[in-house]
Computed example of a mutant assay.
Amino acid sequence: MGSNLSFEDIQPHLVRMAILENESGQRIATGILLMTGEGDKRNWAAYAEKAALENIVQQKIEHPFSMAPVALIAKYGYEAKQVDRADGLLHVQIKKSAGVVQESKPTEKVQRLKGRRICLDPGHGGSNQNVSPLNPAYKEKDMTLKVALALKPMLEEEGATVYLSRDKDMELPPAERTKKINAYGAELVVSIHTNAGGGNGAEVIYSIYSDDKLAKILLEELCSKLGVVKRKVFTRTLPDNPKKDYYFMIRDINCQSVITEGAFHDNSTDLAILMKPDAHIKYAEALRNGLVKYFNS
């Protein structure tokens, strides 16, 4: 390797011997400039993190190194440049920048659901399994629980207080379920389900005493994240009493409540989506995104 090599000339597939010098030209480390991997897996073999870089510059340590990219060095307020030498090695000189770039302090995450009280209701449980007729390995009770357990920390990270009607596989009759949920004093209940009965896609059910704003937002997010067909949002009343909601998870809840049906587990296309390893995460992310949009609009 000749001395005509430039620092900017370093390519990912090259390995170069290099000398690291301080501003006075004194050798303070010797090592290899190395990048490994291809495509998305491309990465420097070792980074000069801030503490190590400071120690090297101040000559507190002298050791072999794998140099970091110029951008990383600049992030810590240093300049790096190639210095020509006749020994065939690439010499890299680093010094403090004239206008030091201060390392940015991490910004505090905005909690978009701060103060909100939300109850998640994983549908079914225990002997009430709701097994797919197309694949007995799929049980709605398991899927809804996985979604709720994934969603809970997502909402808590956004500042919400989150309650669960169940956090394990257990029998929870309607009266016991609604009594437990009402005792939490939440302002919103999301009852999580997958559908059956002939159809495909997602739908969301809301109360006759609520508007459809939340239901529409959740439906959009479910279809976007899961990649399922958009069916509808709707309400339903008791056949003999049009002033009462049909579903007990809406009718017998003391606050706003919606039922989400993410996809049909008796439809082959939808079931294939639900059977993917990350389906419960996408379902949870869809609900998280929808709730954030609803409470911030």
Rank of each mutant, 00 (worst) to 15 (best):
D84I: 06
N128Y: 12
G31H: 07
I94M: 12
Q58F: 12
I281Q: 15
Q93H: 10
R116T: 03
L164G: 07
I205L: 12
D167A: 02
E49R: 13
R166F: 08
H91N: 05
P106Y: 08
R166W: 05
K213F: 00
A202P: 00
T36P: 06
F65W: 02
A186C: 13
V147C: 04
K180S: 00
L238K: 15
A148D: 08
A215P: 10
T36W: 04
G2W: 12
L149E: 11
E8P: 06
A86H: 12
D266R: 03
V92H: 01
G197I: 07
K141C: 04
E171R: 06
P173M: 15
K213S: 06
A284E: 13
G227K: 04
K232A: 01
A183Q: 10
C223V: 03
S132N: 00
E140W: 11
S268F: 07
M67F: 15
P173R: 15
Y163M: 00
K81V: 14
A284S: 09
H63T: 13
I181T: 10
Y184S: 01
M17G: 02
Q26A: 08
R177K: 10
V189A: 04
V15S: 15
V204L: 01
T107K: 12
N289A: 10
G198N: 02
L5I: 07
Q11W: 07
K109F: 12
R85L: 02
Q82H: 10
Q93T: 12
V189W: 05
S6K: 07
E140M: 07
R117H: 02
T161V: 00
A98P: 13
Q26R: 05
F65L: 08
I205T: 07
D9N: 09
N55I: 01
I73M: 15
R236A: 13
A137V: 08
D278F: 05
K293R: 12
A286Y: 08
K139P: 05
G31C: 10
P133K: 06
Y283H: 13
K244L: 11
A29C: 03
I32Q: 02
E220G: 09
A51F: 13
G197F: 06
L271N: 13
N55Q: 10
W44H: 14
V100R: 05
E156D: 09
V228G: 09
V15W: 03
G227P: 09
A202Q: 00
Y209R: 08
Q59R: 14
G126R: 11
I217A: 09
